[in-house]
């Protein structure tokens, strides 16, 4: 099977499923709100949260926060690699450089205190070879889905990446 056929077989396949290292918690919500001076009462006032959102929720843009590992934890000897499908594609096609051109986040069910989220990566597309001002390579789209412990979709991040090799400069 050629590289292209192997990648074609990866499209739409769920990969790298992972459960968040800790439950969604309010201390981190407050830390995030404080960092941007977000006074939205949904995150500070229990009565407002009960009325508007049926209880406390996390800011939607915190989706990816719940999956970033601690800087250190016992017994771990290497740093986990985020968005592994992206790095798999770079390696598969032999493309040493890469940039992310677009990032879209779609928000579904609210994330609630105590939720234990899980994530998974799905390759959606890979382009034929293209040449841009950066070099020659391929574009790809990767979805990162987030689900709660009830298997409800809480959000999807889509990344468009361009893996490439710089053009050789004539001597």
């Amino acid at each position: 099977m050629s590289d292209a056929e192997q990648v074609e077989a990866m499209i739409g396949k769920v990969q790298y499923e992972e459960i968040g290292g800790f439950p969604v918690e309010r201390g981190y919500v407050w830390t995030s709100c404080a960092s941007v001076e977000n006074a939205n009462p949904l995150f500070w006032d229990d009565a407002v949260a009960d009325e508007v959102t049926d209880g406390l929720i996390a800011p939607p843009t915190m989706l990816s926060v719940w999956f970033r590992p601690h800087h250190w934890s016992p017994g771990r000897d290497e740093q986990p690699m985020p968005l592994r499908v992206h790095f798999d594609l770079k390696e598969r096609f032999g493309l040493p450089e890469a940039v992310m051109s677009d990032n879209t986040i779609v928000f579904h069910e609210p994330v609630r205190m105590g939720d234990r989220l899980r994530t998974r990566q799905i390759l959606r597309s890979v382009s034929d070879p293209k040449t841009t001002k950066l070099g020659t390579g391929r574009f790809w789209v990767i979805d990162v889905e987030y689900l709660n412990q009830r298997d409800e979709l809480v959000g999807v991040e889509s990344y468009t990446g361009f893996g490439y090799r710089r053009e050789e400069t004539p001597a």
């Binding site: 995030s32 960092s35 977000n38 843009t61 915190m62 990816s64």
Partner: peptide, 9 residues
């Protein structure tokens, strides 16, 4: 992610 939080706010 922090820019996203600023946009949300």
């Amino acid at each position: 992610p922090n820019q996203a939080a600023w946009f949300e706010r």
